[in-house]
Design a protein around this nucleic acid. Sequence first.
DNA 1: ACATTGAGCGCCCTCTGCTGGGGTGGC
DNA 2: AGCCACCCCAGCAGAGGGCGCTCAATGT
Length: 698
Amino acid sequence: MALTALCGVAGSAGGEVGQVYVDQSGQYFIREATEEDGGLRRSKRVRTATAVTADAAMVQASGEAGQTVQLAAGGQAVAAAAGGAYQTVTLVPSDGNSDEVSYVLIVQPDAEEGQKQEGDDQTIGVYDFDDGDEQPEEEESGEEDDKARVTRIAPRKSSQTVSQAHMCSYCNYTSPKRYLLSRHMKSHSEERPHKCSVCERGFKTLASLQNHVNTHTGTKPHCCKFCDANFTTSGELVRHVRYIHTKEKPHTCPECDYSSVELSKLRRHMRSHTGERPYQCPHCTYASPDTFKLKRHLRIHTGEKPYECDICGSRFTQSNSLKAHRQIHSGEKPVYHCELCPTTCGRKTDLRIHVQKLHTSDRPIKCKRCGKSFPDRYSFKLHSKTHEGEKCFKCDLCPYMSTSQRHLESHMLVHTDQKPFVCQHCDQSFRQKQLLKRHVNLYHNPNYIPPQPREKTHECPECGRAFRHKGNLIRHLAIHDPEASAAEKQLALKLGRETKVTVRAAIQPLRHWTALDQQPMEMYEDEGEEEVGLGGEAQQQGRGGGAEQKMVAVQGQDGQQYVVLEVIHLQDANGEEQTVAVVPDSALSQAAGAGGSGIDMQLAAGPAASSIDAAQLGTDVSLADDGLPADLLPQAAGEGAGGEQPRRPTTPGGRRRVDDQAVQKSKQDMQNCFGFDDDEEDVDFLAAGGKKEAVEMM
DNA sequence: ACATTGAGCGCCCTCTGCTGGGGTGGC
DNA sequence: AGCCACCCCAGCAGAGGGCGCTCAATGT
């Protein structure tokens, strides 16, 4: 016979298939390739194996029948001539490595079989073929009872002899009774003598056949005593009882609190810990932890949609999708009510998302209009309703009010000369996107076909003049206002819009503009902006001479100053409001023949004008009541606020001289925003070259 | 020979959660 | 008109429950 004998590593916990192992009790065994259950199935049957020596060299030695094959610790195979009907396998501990004890497997003829069977204490690791029926060439077939061998193995060190047992030569089955082994050997046989009369399928045992036949006949003799369930086999019944009634789950996960009725379920569960995904999709990178998921996944590639709605014919890849879909037809759609508001959702997950978005918040939300705080977006929304229609967003520079923050932001551009929408074809720029769009269409788009003028449907009840837009009519109605209050408001607004502020640095989104006496806009906290308010002292200093002042400073987190505002409304000696013009740097520079460098804000007038605390803001601010650059003016220490900063002389009585040129420039700068508010006039205005006389605007 | 027990594999189903697209209404 | 929030829906995957079926092991 051809025999490959090996040596293995003693005490090895794992190892290659075919290695010789010695367990803690000193038993030798060989792990076979057929092992599936993760444990070590002991086999005394040596067919092939790999020699693993102490130095981990893999050595294989083959011996012919009747030979003695000896592997030394170094992996050298030593074959010696031998004879006899039996083979004795001897495992000899080597003295190779100190850390790992290697054993040498010696295969040698055994002429004294009988003695070995009796248990030779001096024999080490014996393969003992008790029946002497040597069928070396047919070992692979493994279908006969006579393949069974009785083997006795004992290591030399312990000088132990295992009591005689009837062992299966194909697996590690042992039995004290030979007839039991004989019965066992049928399991290695592929013979299926018991045939089903229905499907002709064969079974190894009659019991198996009977169970199978029951599946044909539907016979389910095993009835659950707790419910009406019946099962084909008793095993099914037991499992059913565990699943449904006793909840007994003997298989427990060592890593979590999961437990299962079946071991296979625990194994499946363990894959969720290990991440093992043995089932690879052949079409993509997806791999599944079990066959079902892979099968389900494959429908993506095949396009198979096995679940069809019997009402509308819609098809789905998963049964649950169909189930959910059916509820649309049946009207049995579940309704998930939010406990915190009247909102309902059709699905649990949607409700969860709703709660997440509307009812949970990391921090309170502050109302920009009144400053109240609310724990979540929902309560904030409810609260916001109470402000509906209110024009809470008031411009600090003019009487403008708006119901929305966005509108105020847009309006603020009027005061800052910001025209962020620049025409790419000429040097025109605009404050509003739509204005730029219209400009481009009118002047740079040869294909533009202006829309037909709409009918003037809004007619004035007083004079009959018609307007295309309601807003224009409303504005017009101010003319007929008997108390002139509307007209006054219009005038005030128009004048207020003339208030201009220049800024040195680029202005960040205007929503960050905030009057000092307003609450910080908490809604925008997350945008990395930090409000820098003037201290109370600065504010107080800024409120002198009967002038109403509001100052705004916004500082980014980078420390750069972005916006500084100072607003002054004055009354003249008669108590009437005085027009205040705020002059842009450019105008001032032009008038003075010098640039206004270093001057961040220049107001055109103001007897009690104050400078903003430059030390705090890091910004130079001064008033330009005469149109001269601040840096050309003499110091006016102690006057007004912020005495450290250059001051402009003020006129006696609090009147300020308004720089005509600056006002003109300011007016011109405001033309666009005023003119464009009336679209029907805007077109004319644009058609006329985009210029209007400032005097017309005033 | 028969009955019992239980492991093992496979299949299907359900529940759950996430994601993205589309529709809609408010601003 | 455009943007945005919200809702609805379908698609897909993770995880687990339950059962059908076969067969080995074991006891009587």
